[in-house]
Every structure is written in structure tokens, then in C-alpha cells.
């Protein structure tokens, strides 16, 4: 591997940018392709496909074998609400490999005693997200039930095209939320992406079980990348 390729690849990964390391398995030469870089011909199609699917693999073009190693940013999960469900979700998300952040301006909820070893921000979502913006490799779960706190975060999630957007609340609560977000200028089509009622339908009853259901939905969204229509971007 070319040392410059390794440095460039790692720099993109540190910046949470998707990248592919393309290696010619015949002569060993390689180069780094960032998402959005143009690559001509059949190889370009394979590159575009690899970015979309996130799957690495060997492709043959004109008798030459290339290995495409796709590096997507590590998935993050941003939870709005330092609530009971979040207390169960935090350790589970960590175990599943997600980089987790919890945001809640209510300091009684967002206390380090309730959330040991968690990146916890006791501030309004707008403030916390300005410092650490959402992106397409981030999932957002809004769990406060409080429109003042949840709605601005949901709006930010649409703007950033988060790969998963979920919101806690009954169908009735959700219908009201949809109306509010529409009034706030979010497109109706985008609103269909919200996973609500939140989580996989596993009959979850306790906060911990709901956390399992939420995490299951997030993982499904990550692994299918919107291909199963499960409340995800098309």
C-alpha cells in the first residue's frame, strides 16, 4: 500500500467521510476515492455501487481484478432525552458498536449519576448539535415526548439526512408531531421516514425492552441502508 494512500484514507476516516481504497490486485497499486469523486467507466459504476451498499469486494474490469475496500464512518446514535429508556439503551448501544451521545437540557435527567460513562450533554439539542453536527452516518432517536426538545432535533435530523430517525410516542402523539413539523417546513415525504411508533414491533413493554426494539430498528436501518423501506431514505 502506498503510504500516501494510507494517510489520505485515515484522514478521511477521522473526518467521518466515506472512502474506498481501490487496489489493483495485479500490480498492487492503489488509490483512495472519496465519496463524490468521479471514476470513469465500468469501474466507476462498481465504485458507486460499493458506496451505496457499503460492501467491499473484488470486481473484474477488462480482465483486471480490483479490490474495493469500502470504509464508511462508524455509526453514531444520538438520543434526545436522558430518560429511563435511554438508561437501558446506552449500554446496549455501546455493546453493539455505536458511538452514543445523549442530549437533554433537563439537568435533573441528564446527570452523570444516571448516565455513567456516557457522552452526555445537558443542553438544548440546537446547542449540542451545533458543536457536533448530525450526518448521514448518524441515527437519531427522540425520546423526550416534549415537542420543545424533540422537534428541533428531528428537524436537524432531516436536514442532515440521518440514516435513521425515530420518535417515541403513540400514533396520536405522532400525528400531532407530523402536523407540527409540516408547519415548521419539513416536507411530507420526509416525515414518512420517521420510525413511529418507535422500534421494532416485538411487543416491548418495559423501558429496557423498548430500548432493545429501538436498537433493533437502528441496526436494521444501518444494515439495509434504506433498501427495505423500513422508515428510511429511499
Amino acid at each position: 500500500m502506498d503510504p500516501h494512500s494510507l494517510k489520505k484514507l485515515n484522514a478521511l476516516r477521522r473526518d467521518r467521510k466515506a472512502a474506498i481504497l481501490l487496489t489493483d490486485l495485479g500490480d498492487g497499486r492503489d488509490r483512495v476515492i472519496g465519496e463524490g469523486d468521479t471514476v470513469a467507466g465500468v469501474l466507476g459504476e462498481a465504485v458507486a455501487r460499493a458506496f451505496r451498499s457499503g460492501k467491499s469486494g473484488v470486481v473484474e474490469v477488462d480482465g483486471r481484478h480490483f479490490f474495493l475496500n469500502v470504509h464508511l464512518p462508524a455509526p453514531r446514535l444520538v438520543v434526545i432525552g436522558a430518560v429511563h429508556i435511554s438508561q437501558a439503551l446506552a449500554p446496549m448501544a455501546k455493546i453493539a458498536g455505536f458511538d452514543l451521545t445523549i442530549i437533554d437540557p433537563r439537568t435533573a435527567f441528564a446527570s452523570p449519576e444516571r448516565f455513567p460513562d456516557v457522552a452526555l450533554h445537558a443542553e438544548w439539542p440546537d446547542e449540542a448539535l451545533a458543536r457536533q453536527p448530525l450526518d448521514a452516518y448518524t441515527a437519531l432517536a427522540a425520546l423526550t415526548h416534549d415537542p420543545k426538545i424533540d422537534d428541533p432535533a428531528l428537524k436537524a435530523a432531516f436536514d442532515a439526512e440521518c440514516f435513521y430517525i425515530g420518535a417515541l410516542g403513540s400514533r396520536k402523539t405522532h400525528a400531532k408531531r407530523v402536523e407540527r413539523l409540516k408547519d415548521a417546513g419539513v416536507a411530507g415525504q420526509a416525515l414518512e421516514r420517521i420510525n413511529a411508533p418507535i422500534g421494532l414491533d416485538i411487543g416491548a413493554a418495559t423501558p429496557a425492552e423498548i430500548a432493545v426494539a429501538v436498537l433493533g430498528s437502528v441496526i436494521r436501518a444501518l444494515r439495509t441502508r434504506g433498501l427495505d423501506g423500513g422508515g428510511l431514505p429511499s
Binding site: L6, K7, N10, R13, P73, A74, G97, T101, A119, Q132
Partner: peptide, 17 residues
């Protein structure tokens, strides 16, 4: 630092660099 995934500490390509 909180933008960097915790696994980067054991990330083989980061270690290679």
C-alpha cells in the same frame, strides 16, 4: 475527540500509520 469512534484506538489502519 468525541467524533472519533472509540474503536479507533484498536483500528488496524490507524495503528499501521
Amino acid at each position: 475527540s468525541d467524533l472519533v469512534h472509540k474503536d479507533h484506538a484498536r483500528d488496524p489502519l490507524m495503528i499501521a500509520e
